[in-house]
Amino acid sequence: MKSIAIQEIKDIIANITDENDPIFVELAEDSRKGVQSLLKKWQREHQIREEKKQRFIHMSQYEIAARKEGFEWIAGIDEVGRGPLAGPVVSAAVILRPDQYIEGLDDSKKMSGKNRNKLYEQIKEEAVAIGIGVIYSDEIDQINIFEATKKSMLQAIKQLSQEPDLLLIDALHLNTPYTEQSIVKGDANSISIAAASIIAKVTRDRMMAEYDKQYPGYGFAQHMGYGTKAHLAAIDAFGACPIHRKSFEPIKSMK
C-alpha cells in the first residue's frame, strides 16, 4: 500500500475494527512515519474502546443475573440533588433494551458535562422507557429530604411507559409492588442505574440553568445549588430566594 496516499490510508483505517485485519497487518509493514503514526493512534483509540466495552460488561452483571432469573423489564432508579441548598431533588427511572450498548456509560458524577449530555441524548433515544420525578424545595422543607427523595423515585417509576418487573435502586429501598434490589454505589455498578443517574443529573442541571435566569446573582448555573463558597456569599448578600431550602443550614438560621 506504499503507493496509497496518507489521507486515503486514514480513511481505510477508520473502517478497521480488528488489529488482525489483513489490511492493518499490511500497513504495519509500511515504513512511512505518517502511516505508523496513524496506526499508533488507531491502537490507542481501540484500547480505549475496548476498556469502555469491558467496563460496560462489568456493569451489566446485575442485569444479566436478573434476566437469567426471568426478569424482563429492569428499571434502574437514581436521584440527584439531595445535598444542595437550593432547587429540587430529581429522580429518574430507566429501562434499557437487553441488547443496548452505550459506550462510555458510567456514574454521571465521573463524567464531563459534554459526555453526560451526549449520553443523555442517546439514552433518551434508545431506552425502552424513561420516567422522571421532581420534588421541589417547598415540599422538601415540609417532608424532609429523605422522604422527598423516595417520593421523587416513586414518581419516576409511575412515569414509565413500560411497567417494570424489577427495580435496581441506588442504595435505597422503596415500598412498591415490584421486586426490588438495593445496590450500594449502584450508579457505578449497574448500567440501568448509571443511565438513570445521567438522566436525573442532566434534567436537574438544565432546571438549575433556568433558575439561574429567573434568580440572577446566585450562580445556580455554575454550582447547581450546592453550598459552594460563591453560593454562600450570594446568600449572605441577597438573602434566600424562593427555590432555597428553608430547612437547610445556614438558611434555616437566617430566618
Rank of each mutant, 00 (worst) to 15 (best):
M1K: 11
K2C: 06
I4P: 10
I6M: 09
I6W: 07
Q7P: 00
E8L: 13
K10G: 06
D11S: 15
D11A: 15
D18F: 11
D18A: 11
D21N: 12
E26N: 08
L27W: 13
R32D: 12
G34S: 03
S37T: 10
L38P: 07
L39H: 01
K40C: 00
K41E: 08
W42K: 10
Q43L: 08
Q47V: 07
E50W: 05
E50I: 12
K53V: 11
F56S: 03
M59Y: 01
M59D: 05
S60E: 08
S60D: 01
K68A: 09
I74A: 03
A75T: 01
I77C: 01
E79W: 04
V80D: 01
G81E: 00
A86N: 00
P88C: 06
V90W: 04
S91T: 01
S91A: 15
A93D: 04
I95Y: 08
G104I: 11
D106F: 10
D107T: 07
D107I: 05
S108M: 09
R116I: 13
K118I: 15
L119D: 00
I123Q: 15
A127P: 12
V128G: 05
I130C: 14
I130H: 14
G131I: 03
G133E: 04
G133C: 12
I135L: 10
Y136W: 15
D138F: 13
D138R: 15
E139K: 14
Q142F: 14
F146Q: 14
E147P: 03
E147G: 01
S152W: 05
I157H: 03
I157K: 04
S161A: 14
L166H: 08
I169Y: 08
I169S: 07
D170C: 09
L172W: 13
P177V: 05
Y178I: 03
E180I: 07
I183K: 05
N189W: 00
N189L: 09
S190V: 10
A194K: 01
A196M: 03
V202T: 01
T203A: 02
R206Y: 00
M208E: 05
Y211G: 04
K213I: 07
P216V: 06
Y218F: 10
G219T: 03
Q222C: 07
Q222T: 11
Y226I: 04
A230K: 10
L232E: 05
L232G: 02
A234N: 06
A240I: 02
A240H: 10
C241K: 12
I243G: 04
H244F: 11
S247W: 11
F248W: 07
F248L: 14
E249V: 12
P250I: 08
I251D: 12
